[in-house]
Design a protein around this nucleic acid. Structure first.
Lengths: 166, 166
DNA sequence: ATGATGAGTTAGCAC
DNA sequence: GTGCTAACTCATCAT
C-alpha cells in the first residue's frame, strides 16, 4: 500500500491536464442521471436508488454506486471524528465531577474533624471534672458511681446508626 | 475539494492499466538517484538531501522533495494518532486516581463520623453524670463547680490545630 | 449493504 | 521547511 500510494500520486499527476480540461467543460457534456447531487445521492433510499439505476449501463451503475459508497464513507468518517470528540469531552466532564466530589469530601472531612476535636476537648474537660468528682464521690459513696465508670472505661462503644450525625 | 476528489478518483481509474504496466517493469527502467528508499529519504538531513539533489533536473528535484514531504506527513499523522491515544489514556488514568481518592475520603469520612458518634455518646453520659453531680455539688459547694460550667456551657470552643487529629 | 475505524493523503495553519 | 491536525479516501472488519 505505501509504495502504491506514492506511485499512484505521481501517476495521477500526469492526468492533471486531462482532468482540468474535462472539469472546465461545464455544464457536463453528459447531463445524464449521474448528475444527481451528492446530498441527494447519499440520502436516497435503496428503493429510490434502484429506480434511478434503471436503464443505465453496467458501468454507469457501478460508478454511481461507488460514488454513493464514498459519500456514505465521508459521513461515517465525520461521525467517527465527532464521536471521538464527544467521548473526550465526556471523560473531561466526569473528571471535573470527581474533582468537585473530592473537594466536597475534603471540606466535609475537615469540618467533621474540627467537630471531633471540639468534642474531644469538651470530653477531656468533663473527664477531668468527673475524675476529680469520682475521687470526691468515692469519699462520699453514692449510687451513681457505677454508672460513671461504665461510660468512662469503654474506649470503643457500640455505635448508633450514622444518621444521627449531622 | 469534495467534487474534485470524486472526479479525480474516477479519472484515476483510467490510468490503472498504465500504472500496472509501469509497476510490473521491475527493476525500474530509470535506476537513478530517485530510487532511494522511503526510510532513507525521510530520515535524510537537509544537507544530505541537497547533496543528493545535485545534478538532478528541476522536475526530479521537485518530485523527490514532494515524496519526502509526503513521507514526513505520513509520520506526522501516525504521531498525531498516537498522541490522541495517549491523551485519552492519561485522562482515564487521572479519572481512576480521582475515583480512588473519592473512595479513600469516603472511608476516612465514615470512620471519623463513627468516632464522632462514639464520642458524642461518651460525652452525653459524662454530661448527665456531671449534671447530676453538679446538682449534688451545688448542694455541697466546692471550688471546682465554676470550672465545670466553663466547659459545659460553651457549645463551640476555640480549636486546637487539626494536627492533633488522627 | 451498512457502519465503523486505522492508516495514508492533502490542505492549510502556525512557527 | 517543519510539524500538526481536520477532512477525506480507502481497506478492512463486523453486523
Amino acid at each position: 500500500m505505501k509504495v502504491n500510494k506514492i506511485f499512484l500520486s505521481q501517476v495521477k499527476e500526469e492526468l492533471t491536464a486531462a482532468a482540468a480540461r474535462a472539469a472546465s467543460a461545464s455544464p457536463p457534456l453528459t447531463p445524464n442521471h449521474t448528475s444527481i447531487s451528492d446530498d441527494d445521492l447519499v440520502s436516497l433510499s435503496v428503493k429510490d436508488l434502484n429506480r434511478l439505476l434503471k436503464g443505465l449501463t453496467r458501468d454507469e451503475v457501478s460508478k454511481l454506486k461507488q460514488r454513493r459508497r464514498t459519500l456514505k464513507n465521508r459521513g461515517y468518517a465525520a461521525n467517527c471524528r465527532e464521536k471521538r470528540i464527544s467521548q473526550k469531552e465526556e471523560l473531561e466532564t466526569e473528571k471535573d465531577k470527581l474533582r468537585a466530589e473530592v473537594e466536597r469530601l475534603q471540606r466535609e472531612n475537615s469540618i467533621v474533624k474540627m467537630e471531633l476535636n471540639a468534642l474531644r476537648n469538651k470530653c477531656e474537660a468533663l473527664e477531668q471534672f468527673a475524675h476529680r468528682n469520682d475521687i470526691r464521690v468515692l469519699t462520699h459513696p453514692h449510687h451513681m458511681v457505677s454508672q460513671m465508670h461504665a461510660s468512662l472505661v469503654v474506649k470503643s462503644e457500640p455505635m448508633l446508626p450514622s444518621s444521627t450525625v449531622s
